[in-house]
């Protein structure tokens, strides 16, 4: 039976995939970043439709920030950020098409032909869900949660140290002065 929830999931799902496709079809890098932002926002809307309010809001907030930063980097690093020159920036398109399509067909086959068992029709209230998630994070999954935190810290330090320009050696600086 088609419910309102199914209609909204279908609508936001089509939007997420459509904007995902636009990411690789437009020549403008800023448009690419904005299309990815819309795709991720549609995904967040799907989470909200599936009554995962906390995750939906988190997804939208996180991706809005992430994609804004990405847009800045796109403008900085691309040779033709506005896409005015319609530069071709792809390779091995045929192989990519085949692998992408095969992945899609394989995943759809698994989704459709596997018997997923009984489906839950009701879900706990938002406040109860968030409380259960908090207890999970600070209880049984504490180690995994802490590992994620430490990994983020490590990645931040690693990314910053990689991005900082190397210091010139004292010998070279001395020679340059002479």
């Amino acid at each position: 039976m088609i419910t309102a929830q199914a209609i909204f999931i279908g609508f936001f799902g089509v939007a997420a995939v459509w904007f995902g496709v636009v990411v690789f079809r437009t020549f403008s890098m800023v448009r690419s970043a904005i299309a990815l932002l819309f795709s991720q926002t549609a995904l967040g809307a799907m989470f909200l439709t599936m009554q995962a309010e906390f995750l939906g809001v988190l997804q939208i907030m996180m991706m809005a920030t992430e994609m804004s930063i990405m847009a800045f980097f796109m403008v900085m690093f691309m040779m033709d950020p506005g896409g005015m020159g319609k530069m071709e920036m792809t390779h091995q398109k045929r192989l990519s098409w085949i692998v992408g399509l095969a992945s899609f067909v394989g995943a759809v086959a698994i989704a459709v032909f596997i018997d997923w068992g009984p489906v839950a029709t009701t879900v706990a209230e938002t406040a109860e869900q968030t409380e259960a998630l908090g207890l999970e994070l600070l209880g049984r999954s504490m180690l995994i949660f802490e590992m994620a935190g430490v990994t983020i810290l490590t990645a931040m330090i690693a990314a910053t140290s990689v991005a900082i320009p190397p210091m010139p050696s004292p010998e070279k600086t001395h020679k340059d002065k002479v």
Partner: peptide, 27 residues
Amino acid sequence: ELIWALITGAALFGVGIYGALSQTNLV
């Protein structure tokens, strides 16, 4: 609802695989 969500996931996965393999720019 479950099937549509899984099909959306499959489509995003396929599009992502295409993009990761076909693009020449790191970003």
